[in-house]
Every structure is written in C-alpha cells, then in structure tokens.
C-alpha cells in the first residue's frame, strides 16, 4: 500500500516539476532578452525594477529556477501584459468553469460509456453493440471541433435552443436559482458535445473487457449458483473489470484536457483553455505560462483522484500487495 502511494506521489511530483520546468525554459529559449517575456516594455520603471527583483532576473539561472518553482507553487504567477493585473486574479474566476466542464464531461461520458459497454457485452450482436462500435470509431476520427461546430450550427443557429457563446448570460439573472439554471443552460451543449465525442471509446473498451470477463470460469460458477443476471453482470463481472477501466480513465485524461481547450474556444467559454489561447495570441507570456501551469495542475490532480479510485477498486492494492501491471 505504501509503495503504491509513494510511487504515485513521486510520479505526480515528477510531472509537476516537468510542467514547471517546461514553462520556465520554454519562455526563456525565445529569441531576445529573457526579461522581455516577464517584463513588458510598457511597464513603469518602478514595476520593472520590482519584477526584476521578484524573479531574481540578475541571478544565475539555477537560482532563477528555484525562485520560479517557489512562485509557481504559491500561485504567484506574474503580471499579465494585456490587462496589467496579476494573472492569478484573472485565472481564479476561470478555474471553476473549466473544472465544471471537465468534471461533468468526464463523469457523464464514462458513466454512459460504461453502461452501454456492459449492455453491449451482454447482448452480443444486438443494436447496442452496433451503436457502440460505430460511435467508437467515429469518435476516433472526427475532429472534436468539427462535431462541436456542427452541433453549434444545429442547436444554436438552425434551432436556437442553446446560446451561441459564453458561460453565462449578460446581464446575469437576478435570483441565485435562475443564475444556476442559466449556467447549466450554457454548459449543456459544450459538456454534451464532449460526452457525445467521448462515450464511444469508453464503451468499446468496456465491452471488450466485459466480453473477456464474461467468458471466465467464475461467471459460469455464478450462473450455476443461479444468481440473478444483473448481479452477475455488475457485482461479479464488472467488479473485476473495473481496475483496467480506471487505467483507461487515467490514460484518457490528458486528451480530455486538450479537448477542453478546443471546446472552450468553440463555445467561447470563460475558462482556462480559452485564456491560454487568448494569451498566446496576444503574446501575453506570463498569462500563457500560468494558464498552461494551471491546466497541468488540473491534470495532475485528476490523475491522483483516478489513482485513489484505482486503489479502492483493486483489492491487491487495498490489501497491500505490490501491483502488477
């Protein structure tokens, strides 16, 4: 148990350090003065002096890196070139939106995919199985933004049931309840499109695992004991197929975060990914670096959450033996 967690934690720290190092070096390999990626020429001389001091720009590179790591870990992310305000102030309001989009899309698509996959495995050759196979291969080859653009065209232009852009209506509705409803209304199409794009590959994977598991001896035994079909399917077969499903959850995470960046752009959501794009387009380097860092952090945190779920689901880890993968 301890070895599993220490290895996972070590992995997370390694990824975190890599993200920070990538951030640090990417913005320093640029042509010209490294200072120009942190200090905008338009800043006042006092501000320039202060930033130089804060980032230790006159110190050797390794000292600069240490200072940088400390600043990143304390969310002291520098000052945006475009708005001239601390980047963290700007990012703070966007993080919940990205988390809501990612979280709802992940949970819904994995739940739907798992359910359909299990159904497809039970009734081989049925309608569900065909649906699962087709939607799976579609989700592999259709660009996410294309599907989302078509959905936007259909449900925001041709049949205007959903908003064309934004995370909330402007002006905001008065009551808290109406505001929540408004937020959901804006979230439904982006999150829904991610579910449509995502459930297929889940379903295929779960189906393949379940087909294999349902052919095993212990399922035959469960049948021989006369257990009800639902219980065999979920408590016996799916329970033992759960750990590898969670592994896929882990592997799919980075792709889903990438997808969120595109989704936020298509639907013009007030999120971290859209902020990253806007900052890159506006050559706002501190803001771009910070947005990249936050996205990396989100991935790491959800990675750890999936690890925790894996530890709960796999008795070999819960009980404490070394995991073999």
């Amino acid at each position: 148990m301890r070895s599993y967690w220490s290895r996972r934690a070590l992995g997370a720290v390694a990824v975190l350090l890599l993200v920070i190092a990538a951030n640090f070096f990417l913005f320093r390999i640029m042509p010209g003065d490294a200072v120009s990626t942190i200090v905008d020429p338009r800043f006042s001389p006092e501000a320039k002096e202060r930033l130089r001091e804060l980032f230790g720009l006159d110190l050797p590179l390794y000292r600069q890196f240490l200072i940088y790591v400390r600043r990143m870990l304390t969310f002291d992310l520098g000052i945006s070139f475009l708005s001239q305000r601390p980047v963290w102030e700007e990012l703070k309001s966007r993080i919940p939106n990205t988390v809501a989009l990612l979280g709802s899309a992940l949970l819904l698509s994995s739940a739907l995919g798992t359910w359909l996959g299990v159904k497809a495995a039970r009734r081989r050759g049925g309608l569900t199985e065909k649906l699962v196979l087709v939607s799976g291969s579609v989700s592999f080859s259709f660009p996410s933004f294309f599907v989302q653009l078509v959905l936007l065209l259909l449900f925001a232009y041709t049949f205007p049931v959903f908003p064309l852009r934004g995370s909330v209506s402007i002006p905001l509705p008065e009551s808290a309840f109406a505001r929540a409803l408004d937020y959901l209304w804006h979230l439904l199409l982006p999150a829904g499109s991610l579910v449509i794009l995502g459930f297929g590959s889940w379903a295929i994977y779960v189906r393949n695992l379940m087909v294999k598991t349902l052919g095993e001896d212990f399922i035959l035994l469960a049948r021989a004991k006369g257990l009800p079909e639902g219980r065999i399917l979920w408590n016996h077969a799916f329970r033992s197929a759960l750990p590898p499903v969670l592994t896929i959850f882990l592997l799919a995470l980075p792709g889903i975060v990438s997808g969120a960046v595109i989704t936020e752009t298509v639907f013009s959501l007030h999120g971290v990914g859209k902020y990253l794009l806007d900052s890159i387009m506006g050559h706002d380097y501190p803001a771009a670096g910070a947005a990249f860092y936050i996205l990396g952090l989100l991935t790491i945190v959800s990675n750890l959450a999936a690890d925790a779920a894996y530890a709960l689901a796999d008795p070999r880890i819960r009980v404490g033996r070394r995991i073999q993968r």
Partner: peptide, 22 residues
C-alpha cells in the same frame, strides 16, 4: 520509459500551443 510515462500524462495540446506561439 519514465520519460514516456510523464510525457503521456500531460496534455500535449497546450504544450503545442505554447510552442507554436513562441
């Protein structure tokens, strides 16, 4: 293989965006 693991566990698109931007 550790390097591969780490690279596979961070979202690539934001890195590509930053690189293209720079």
């Amino acid at each position: 293989m550790r390097v591969v693991d780490v690279l596979l566990s961070i979202p690539i698109l934001p890195i590509l965006m930053v690189l293209v931007g720079i």
